[in-house]
C-alpha cells in the first residue's frame, strides 16, 4: 500500500499544482465492488498557507472484473447527478493515462461515517428499514424523473427510442451468456425465448437507468439517512422500470418479494417511486423487466464464474456470486417461467 500511496500522491500533485507537501496515508482496499478495485485513503496538503485534509476514494479498473464496464460511464453519472442534490459523492478526477497507476481510475469524495447494508442479510437495515426504504424509492423516482440531457448525463451516449430499450438490453446480456457460459443454461435460454416472445410496451420516457440500484449499493449514516448512491458502472439510457425491477429482485435480502431489499412493502415502494418520478409502473411492463433482470443477474454471475474458472480474476466474491447467486436466479426464474408457461398454455 505504501507504493500506491506514493503514486497517488504524485498524481494529486500533478492535478493540483497549487498544492504543496501532498501526503497520502491510511490507504485501505474496500471489499466488494468486484468490477473495480476500490481504495479508501486520506490526502493532506498545504494550499494558500493553510493545511487541507480530504478523505478520498480511488476506483481503479481491475485486470478483469465482474462487470466489464467503462469507468467514464460511472464518473459521468456522478458528475451529472452531484449538482442535482441526489446523494452521490463528488467526482474529482478521471484518469486514463496508464503511467500513473497502471490502469485507468478515478478519484472521488469519501463519504465518512456511513455503512452499506449486505444484500445477503435478511434484515440489512434493522430498525431503519422503513426510513431507509422511503428514501431509497424516492431517490430512484428522482433518478427516473431527471432529464438525462439537461443534467449532462446523455452526452456521448448512444440515443435509444422508447420502443427499443428492451431489445438493446436483452441483446447485450444474451451476448454475455453466449460468450461466457461454461455449461448449457436451460433456464436462462427459456427466459431469453420468453422475453423475445413477449416484448414489453415502449418505455413511458427515456431516463437515466442506474443499472445496479439495490440493497448494498448505497451508504447510510447512523441516523438512517442515505448519504451516497454508489456503483453506477452499469448506468445507461433506457426504460426507468428497469431499475424498479432490479431493486425488487428476489435475490436481494433473502427472496422476500413482499418486502424487496429488506426495506418497505412492495406496494408502498412502487407508490413512492410513482410519486417521485411522476411515472406509472405499468404492471405488465414491470413484469417483463423483472424477468429480464433475473436473467441479467444470471448473465453477470455466469460471467463471474468464467472469470474465476479461467483464472482471469481470483477475487473470492466472483466464486461466491457464481455459486450462490446463479442458483438463486435459476430458482427464481424457473418458478416464474413455469407459472407463465401454464398461463400461456391455458
Amino acid at each position: 500500500m505504501e507504493d500506491l500511496a506514493r503514486r497517488v500522491a504524485a498524481y494529486l500533485a500533478h492535478r493540483m499544482p497549487q498544492a504543496s507537501n501532498i501526503e497520502v496515508s491510511r490507504v485501505s482496499r474496500i471489499h466488494g465492488g468486484a468490477s473495480r478495485e476500490t481504495f479508501r485513503l486520506h490526502a493532506s496538503w498545504e494550499e494558500g498557507g493553510a493545511k487541507v485534509e480530504r478523505p478520498l476514494i480511488l476506483r481503479r479498473d481491475p485486470v478483469a472484473s465482474l462487470i466489464e464496464t467503462e469507468r467514464d460511464l460511472e464518473y459521468n453519472a456522478y458528475r451529472a447527478f452531484h449538482p442535482t442534490g441526489l446523494p452521490v459523492p463528488e467526482p474529482l478526477y478521471l484518469e486514463t493515462d496508464l503511467s500513473w497507476l497502471d490502469r485507468p481510475f478515478f478519484v472521488m469524495e469519501q463519504i465518512e461515517g456511513c455503512q452499506a447494508g449486505s444484500p445477503f442479510n435478511a434484515e440489512p437495515y434493522g430498525n431503519f428499514a422503513e426510513k431507509i426504504g422511503r428514501q431509497f424509492w424516492t431517490h430512484l423516482g428522482h433518478i427516473a424523473a431527471a432529464d438525462p440531457h439537461g443534467i449532462g448525463f446523455a452526452a456521448n451516449m448512444d440515443p435509444i427510442a422508447p420502443e427499443e430499450c428492451w431489445k438493446r438490453e436483452l441483446e447485450k446480456w444474451e451476448k454475455v451468456i453466449d460468450e461466457d457460459e461454461l455449461e448449457p443454461q436451460p433456464v436462462a435460454r427459456a427466459a431469453i425465448r420468453w422475453l423475445k416472445r413477449n416484448p414489453p410496451s415502449p418505455a413511458e420516457k427515456i431516463s437515466v437507468v442506474h443499472g445496479d440500484y439495490r440493497t448494498g449499493n448505497f451508504l447510510f449514516d447512523a441516523e438512517g439517512n442515505i448519504r451516497a448512491i454508489l456503483d453506477w458502472e452499469m448506468c445507461h439510457l433506457g426504460d426507468p422500470l428497469e431499475d424498479v425491477a432490479w431493486a425488487v429482485d428476489p435475490l436481494w435480502a433473502h427472496e422476500r418479494p413482499e418486502r424487496p431489499g429488506g426495506m418497505i412493502a412492495r406496494d408502498e415502494a412502487i407508490r413512492l417511486w410513482e410519486e417521485a418520478s411522476g411515472l406509472k409502473a405499468d404492471p405488465v411492463r414491470l413484469r417483463w423487466w423483472e424477468i429480464f433482470n433475473s436473467l441479467k443477474g444470471l448473465a453477470i454471475w455466469i460471467s463471474a464464474g468464467k472469470e474465476y474458472q479461467t483464472g482471469a480474476n481470483r477475487d473470492p466474491v466472483l466464486a461466491f456470486s457464481s455459486w450462490y447467486c446463479t442458483d438463486v436466479h435459476n430458482r427464481v426464474l424457473a418458478r416464474r417461467l413455469a407459472e407463465l408457461s401454464k398461463e400461456g398454455r391455458a
Partner: peptide, 16 residues
Amino acid sequence: ARIWDHLVAATERRKL
C-alpha cells in the same frame, strides 16, 4: 409442463 416441473425441481434441489 413436465419440462418445467423438472427445471423447478432441479433448481430447488441445487439450493445452497
